[in-house]
Design a protein around this nucleic acid. Structure first.
Lengths: 357, 357
DNA sequence: GTGAAAGCGCTAACAA
DNA sequence: TTGTTAGCGCTTTCAC
């Protein structure tokens, strides 16, 4: 049970070399002879060496510097939450001499992303946390980081081929299925179920489609006959047209539920149903944003699926810091559960603490 | 921004004393003159001292020993999960020289708790994690610990007057409300809603009543007219009577939903509805236990409320260790969100990682 | 009461 | 290519 821990010194003793040599092997800093290398490696295994991480951090008086690149929070409440998560993690890591700087780009302007990412690159961070909104612009930037040996963690949406240290987010297909389920719960017999995208930027069209796929899949797998699934894709710029289309949609007496995939869209639909009566239409959307919370409490929105942007960002920094400080490999994918928020469990979510745990 | 950190040495310099004296003041170990004390205290404030926790733990080569006291997992799957949470935290804290021992008592035998707790006390742990099942026996034990200066963290259920370092669990009243809501969703008009306790031990009667209070409260606050709430309290020993009562309950064509508060009870009701047909009765219960998962997937159970025993135990150890090692005060109450599990989001919960974060 | 000094286990600069 | 050594900031012992 409580056998004495083996230190570097012990390895050195067993291998018949000095601690300096062991250290060089441990961190493959080179400048070690074949022979010594072999002996040390054997000794490491023999004594079952586990580094003392506390001592390691104290010994190497290195300042770590992490850059977080996210959309400007002032333009979108969702990103305000991510920003809060980062702020909170700053406090968590400050004692370990971490500097964490946040850089904002304009969610609607890929050029702003390009210039910000270039700026960040020049600061030579030890690690990067990134929300990859602009696929085409992000990938080359990440490849550049890869070459420079800068590890990066993605969150919110993934770029699988970017081979990031870790991705933090949710499974969008599953998310769509849950959305379908929530629209459907308690309904029997025929009816129309709609999924509505009101898109601010074309970038995340792919994500919305993935959710739609899930939404449709749910109804395929849970046929009750006479169920019809429709989808509506609107540009957020066409304000007049949007309301018109919604009116048309809601006019269908068969309409039983709507899943709205974007926050802008949810806001519009909620306002519409508040004005014109809910007529028994189930309304489901995403995230604990202020307006959504209000509509949920008011009974206009029935369910919210929580993507937990705050925690995503928080954990992103956490994984990165742990990797830099303790060389702990984070999971390649950290997929969050699909949290269902109702009027009754809302408070328990709002009051819950954020754990790095 | 990045101004140099002040060390104990700096305090000593400013106060014109040695580091030894500063250390004595910092930890009020006594043996310091009035005069020195004052000077040091001023210096501490002046240089805005923040201790380096890493160095502190390295310097004091103390082994920490935590005892976790929980019901025997072999008798109850719920506690198997708690046990898993503890196991996982052992791995997390091993590098910091923590020894974490788990002690089991018989869930149905208060004497076993008494003897186990006495045994634990004799091992003189530095901290205790405890699931207080037996109120009457637990309180004096905790008072004993308090006197001995052993900090303790409670989880699962609380004893507010025990003044524990922290409590980890859920708000039971809110939990009952969510249970009511889940039974009710999608229903309109009149109907009967039942809450069912099939109790294994009288100890947690208080908790079940708290959930019932919440359940009733939901329907009071969300009257739709003609709604009737009934509650059923059965002893798990009366096997025959239980099925009889359930049969009676389900025979009511007005019955729309049942919330079952105990795992034993949920198992029985699920089996019953599987045999005799669900008849549109909404079934809601607690926790991701194997059998529950099966019934949820089969469509017999409609919703589960996740109490997350694994995470509760995990965080209990986490809070305790952090307190012991880094003197981080945990929150007095760490209330978990009331997680709603459906067939569609089940997998996302089963696959989610346990973060100490 | 006080201060000096030797650790804790590891890193990294430097001399050999 | 190697070994030695002086830290990192704090705790703790021990002599005064």
């Amino acid at each position: 049970m409580g056998q004495k821990k083996n230190r570097i010194k012990d390895i050195a003793f067993h291998a018949g070399v000095s601690v300096g040599t062991v250290d060089r092997v441990l961190h493959n800093r080179g400048r070690v002879s074949e022979e010594a290398l072999k002996k040390v490696q054997e000794a490491i295994i023999k004594v079952d060496y586990k580094p003392n991480l506390i001592a390691r951090t104290l010994g190497s008086r290195k300042r770590h510097y992490i850059a977080a690149i996210i959309p400007d929070p002032s333009l979108d409440e969702y990103w305000t939450q991510s920003s809060l998560g980062i702020k909170q993690s700053i406090a968590e890591w400050a004692p370990y001499d971490f500097q964490i700087d946040t850089y904002h780009f304009n969610l609607y302007d890929k050029n702003s992303f390009k210039s910000i990412s270039e700026e960040v690159y020049l600061t030579k961070p030890d690690g990067i946390l990134l929300a990859p909104i602009f696929y085409k612009e992000t990938l080359p930037f990440l490849m550049l980081c890869k070459t420079a040996g800068i590890p990066y963690v993605l969150f919110n949406s993934n770029i699988p081929e970017a081979s990031s240290l870790s991705f933090i987010g949710q499974n969008l297909l599953e998310s769509g299925k849950v959305g379908g389920e929530l629209c459907h719960i308690g309904h029997h017999g025929p009816g129309t179920f709609a999924i509505l995208h009101i898109n601010e930027n074309i970038q995340n069209a792919v994500h919305l489609l993935e959710k739609e796929k899930g939404f449709r899949k749910f109804f395929e797998e849970n046929q009750s006959g006479g169920v019809q699934v429709v989808s509506l894709d609107l540009e957020s710029s066409e304000a007049a047209k949007i309301n018109q289309e919604i009116e048309l949609l809601v006019a269908d007496p068969q309409l039983k539920g709507i899943l709205v995939t974007t926050s802008k869209g949810l806001s519009i639909v909620s306002a519409f149903l508040e004005r014109n009566g809910k007529k028994g239409i189930r309304l489901v959307g995403y995230d604990l944003l202020e307006e959504n919370i209000r509509y949920l409490k008011a009974g206009i929105i029935d369910f919210l699926i929580n993507q937990n942007p705050k925690r995503q960002a928080f954990l992103g920094i956490h994984h990165l810091s742990n990797y830099l400080l303790l060389k702990k490999e984070p999971p390649a994918m950290d997929l969050f559960p699909l949290e269902i928020i109702t009027p009754q469990n809302l408070d328990s979510y709002l009051n819950a603490r954020l754990h790095s745990y």
